[in-house]
Design a binder for these strands. Structure first.
Lengths: 243, 243
DNA sequence: CGAGCCTTTGATTATGGTCAAGCGCTGTGG
DNA sequence: CCACAGCGCTTGACCATAATCAAAGGCTCG
């Protein structure tokens, strides 16, 4: 299940996004030491499920996941989408149990880091500790922006903001910001934004007709980023989606 | 402006909620050493404002505040309410600037802790570091529940959940869970829940008529907690409101 | 090639928003 | 102590946005 590879953080293309950020060259090996690679998670399978014991932090290497919270009555809420470089599990530290599930939207590979080792490193390497605090802090700030998005914005503004945020996250990874693949379904987007599948579909059609985007199945091109930004109305911090 | 008092964490009634939690007796003085008391903040005044430089973490001693995020277009979103024992400013760590404002809802006093000292303590005292991580982690988990509340619930469910959450927070502070004062206006509640003042007013009237609550001005009694819990439908983690 | 899911589109409805007016605290100054 | 100003709250009438219900078309994968 868990297999070590020769893949080192030092060579990873995600160094600048992921945990290693801020660690001096000569300390990097200490992180490498404790990072475990996992075999890919199949589309639709869970990396971890709500209620399961918390042991590892995960960093997404390739692929994408949705973070899902299931309510007492069975309703699902997608609280975020994790892309490569994102860190998962930080919300589980406080009670040793995952409060959400993480489900792969496509074949996905992750690095796993035992949390006990993370805590240990935190005590020994100030820069690592500070970086970890920054990641969590950014998560909190991001959630506040999301709250504003759901609390104050129309369906159109939410969708526009969502697309821009995705675009920015691609840019941050050195990928094309104006042409990418949507790993999630319309229903997933709708759920995340507090809307319905039908509303998302109608809005996408409308944006297509207005020439703001081009979209075939899940292949998205942003044709008029400025227009999109205009309808969004607000800027949502493009940082860490979910924790 | 900043005055040290003889008030020690050791004697504080909030010890079990606040930063000292988890610190062994013989380490507590190290926290006392760096905590500063501030003169009370008047109703309507800000403890800090969005965009201002981040230097201190704050712990609410008495009173209550609303945490407000102001959008590019001037719209305000109240992302949470801070009660005694709550920690403020954790969302500012990542970029050295407060992403929100904190405005007193009534005369409020706080303890201020320079963040540089917090970081320093984190490095030296593992239990302190772990507690801090727990607080942030709980904040992240709480925000996920809030997302579900805004994304999936009706106006009535949101309000019921809000009242229950407030009630639980009072209970956690050793106060009456079924009879307390609402420090915020109807408009503030509405804004926080993504609704309007009028909707909140109508729902409160309805709950009053059904004998679920009694409410005169801002004096709230929960008469039928189980009924309220029933209409809420979901349980929202009553932990740290906002960070 | 077919089953099943995802997506689109249309018709209708409902929840909560908007606009508007009046009441009632609360606190201040005469 | 009372009067009045101002804000907060309530209530009503009407409206709009997005949900719901329904049906059909289009990928994807076995």
């Amino acid at each position: 299940m868990t297999l070590r590879t020769t893949q080192a953080c030092e060579q990873c293309t995600l160094r600048e996004l992921c945990l290693p950020l801020g660690l001096p060259e000569n300390e990097l090996w200490q992180l490498d030491e404790i990072v475990q690679q996992r075999r890919p998670i199949a589309k639709g399978a869970a990396l971890f499920t709500m209620g399961s014991p918390f042991e590892h932090l995960y960093a997404v290497r390739t692929g994408a996941l949705k973070i899902v919270l299931i309510g007492d009555d069975g309703t699902e809420q997608i609280t975020g989408f994790a892309l490569s470089g994102d860190l998962l599990g930080l919300d589980a530290i406080h009670d040793g149990t995952h409060p959400v599930s993480a489900v792969a939207l496509e074949s996905t590979s992750v690095c796993a880091v035992p949390y006990s080792h993370v805590d240990n490193l935190s005590g020994r390497l100030p820069t690592f500790r500070q970086h970890l605090m920054c990641v969590m802090s950014r998560g909190l700030a991001h959630d506040e922006s999301l709250h504003a998005l759901l609390g104050q914005r129309t369906a159109e503004q939410r969708l526009a903001t969502f697309l821009i945020t995705l675009s920015e996250r691609h840019r941050a990874r050195g990928l094309a910001a104006d042409h990418f693949h949507l790993p999630m379904s319309r229903a997933d987007i709708a759920n995340h934004l507090g809307l319905t599948q039908e509303t998302i579909s109608r809005l996408l059609t409308q944006m297509r007709q207005q020439g703001v985007i081009s979209l075939h199945t899940r292949d998205l091109k942003i044709l008029a980023p400025e227009t999109l930004r205009g309808t969004a109305g607000v800027t949502l911090d493009p940082a860490a989606s979910s924790a």
